[in-house]
Nucleic acid binder design. Structure first.
Lengths: 360, 360
DNA sequence: GTATATTTTTGAATCGATCCAAATTTGGCG
DNA sequence: CGCCAAATTTGGATCGATTCAAAAATATAC
């Protein structure tokens, strides 16, 4: 009875090989894990039995329980899995993370889920040694769930203000200040902002109240930076339309429709991501507006694609790949300390920004 | 002694919680896995003990051994990990795979390695339920290594001719035929080919011998398709330069340098990937050659970026995302059968192809 | 052949959870 | 209170490997 189920449905185990080869379970294990301490004659016998029985090799699941470590990093987001491949910022970050993992042979497990409940389960059950968290949207919740795992983790970007959380990002206020200042120095006085999410599940023009109560501090910081710079040039920031998007094409387009339905459309757009900036460029040029002749566009991120679009995007470049590398290394080389780093950004002027039109 | 090590270095286990709460190990397990069959009073007591002791929840490693399934798909390549995020074809494929995984809550583990030895180990030890293999380069080796795991797997693209291997791809001969025919119908008679790898570690102009002994049948098939179509138009295919690249920017550029050093440069380029086609467009336009006025370029793949470059690329579109979705579903819904699918391709004419120059 | 050193093999314990048949407890009814 | 049914808890087995102290086998020297 037990014999009849063995051949058909239960995979061959090391114990089966040991039996067939006439050695102990421990010796059979040594053949696969420490072959140098096994006599060659015994080794060959075990290998022959394994071959004859179609053994798949030691099961990683058994090894894992004993080993304790997985040698893989989980990268988690509240977005769908395809975000890692669709979003230019995420791609650039993943390229950096990949480099650090390649250097040490670690694997990457992509962790996300379609709903809150599944996300909690997926984080709880992911077979990883630590996490890197994409915190653009839903960051606080990701941090909370991950903390319960008691594994090392690093939050990326748009920083958690909780200094018990390891985080690696850039100075959003300073970066945004540079972007806005650049446009103001070119002579622009009419602006609009395409914003990242301030909170869960909201898009549209943003009220000062919404800005004050923003759950996502990264977004708020970028707006603060824009407004600080513009105030210095005497611009009335209260009149600047701020349209909250979901950092995707559809909501960005909706934002542009709203912004340009105004009686006094802007001559300059500050987009909080290159992704949105590139959508804006396409939207504008499709409608016969010249970039930067009629409207200037400045992004934020410095994704590789920004330099290739037409016109090439002026943007605030953050060292995305380096952030990814550092995050991965922080997990791979975890030493128990909380690690917080803020890297520098840089204004890179390309072809999407120029003086406002004379008739403006 | 045992008590003193417990608090400091050994993580809290379910057994510790059970002891602290005064219940059996099995009951403690039920509290976390089947709370509905535990009386509330007992449940609260266990939860309180877990909270007080900082328990991270049931360890997925223990669960895994019992459960048997990981609920994750491994995606493997012989390229570095960053390939998944840098290569437009790989990105589009991964987006499709991601969609299917999102629909069922499965995770994705990225598997690759810097060298052959580590690759074998990484495939052998990956904690996954099955594999999807990117077989552009090193496909046969990937298949061989994966087979030893005795897990379900699907080879993508550039097909294995072994019909014991599940594979999903497109008809490379037919697709290439369409590309070449399109250019011939436009009037072109001077061609060059930018080829994917025929074998490991070789780039440069390819001899008929190398074509005949090609290890990668997908590449050979695309060349066969090109040559079949062109022969029908009376083109002497033996004189067509075929430059084998590594499907990256550097080797593609080297190929273009070689091809255009000829006394009789081509008026049309057949590139076996959109990635190479886009590099060619940029290379040509940078040197003052007009695309398609002076040189026409046709790609193969239909990556999203192809429609956005300038000029927009004429290419053979394969349903990349659909291939990815099917591959993932073949693993998630594995029924033990070998599954081979060949999906249709389609010629999409955009702005990179046109009649040859009159002086040619 | 005997004694000793070295090499190899053994087998119970461990890693951390879930499962399930049996034992125990609880609740309802007469 | 006793009986019976239902609910809950128990604890040994299982999942599949690695580990390591002790036992056994082999090699070497006299």
């Amino acid at each position: 009875m037990a014999s009849s189920t063995e051949g058909n449905t239960r995979p061959i185990r090391l114990a089966d090989i040991a039996k067939a080869a006439g050695v102990s379970h421990g010796t059979a294990s040594n053949v696969f894990s420490r072959p140098e301490i096994v006599r060659e004659e015994v080794r060959e016998r075990v290998k022959a039995a394994a071959e004859a029985m179609g053994y798949a090799g030691p099961d990683p699941k058994g090894r894992l329980l004993r080993a304790g470590k997985v040698n893989a990093i989980g990268v988690a987001t509240t977005e769908p899995l395809s975000y890692f491949f669709d979003d230019p910022f995420a791609r650039a970050m993943m390229a950096g993370i990949s480099e650090a993992c390649d250097a040490t042979g670690a694997g990457i497990a992509l962790v996300s889920a379609g709903n809150e409940e599944k996300l909690a389960w997926n984080i709880q059950s992911a077979l990883v040694d630590g996490f890197i968290l994409f915190c653009i949207e839903g960051g606080p919740r990701l941090v909370e769930l991950t903390r319960e795992r008691k594994l090392p983790f690093v939050a990326l970007e748009l920083g958690s203000e909780d200094d018990t959380v390891s985080a690696i990002g850039v100075d959003n206020v300073a970066g945004a200040r540079l972007a806005a200042q650049h446009l103001a120095e070119l002579g622009h006085r009419r602006f609009a902002v395409l914003a990242l999410p301030f909170a869960d599940d909201s898009t549209g023009l943003v009220s000062p109240q919404q800005i004050r109560t923003a759950a996502y501090t990264g977004t708020r910081d970028r707006l603060v930076g824009y407004f600080e710079a513009l105030s210095r040039f005497g611009v009335d920031t209260a009149g600047i339309p701020v349209y909250e998007t979901e950092n995707d094409e559809a909501s960005t387009r909706a934002g542009l429709e709203t912004i340009f339905a105004s009686a006094e459309p802007p001559t300059a757009i500050l987009a909080m991501s290159d992704r949105m900036a590139m959508v804006a460029i396409e939207w504008l040029t499709t409608r016969g507006l010249a970039v930067p002749g009629d409207i200037s566009v400045v992004g934020f991120d410095g994704v590789p694609e920004a330099a290739l679009c037409d016109p090439a995007l002026t943007t605030i470049v953050q060292p995305i790949a380096e952030i990814g590398r550092r995050a991965a290394r922080a997990i791979l080389d975890f030493d128990g300390t909380v690690r917080r780093e803020t890297l520098d950004v840089e204004l890179v002027v390309r072809a999407s920004s120029g003086p406002p039109p004379k008739t403006a």
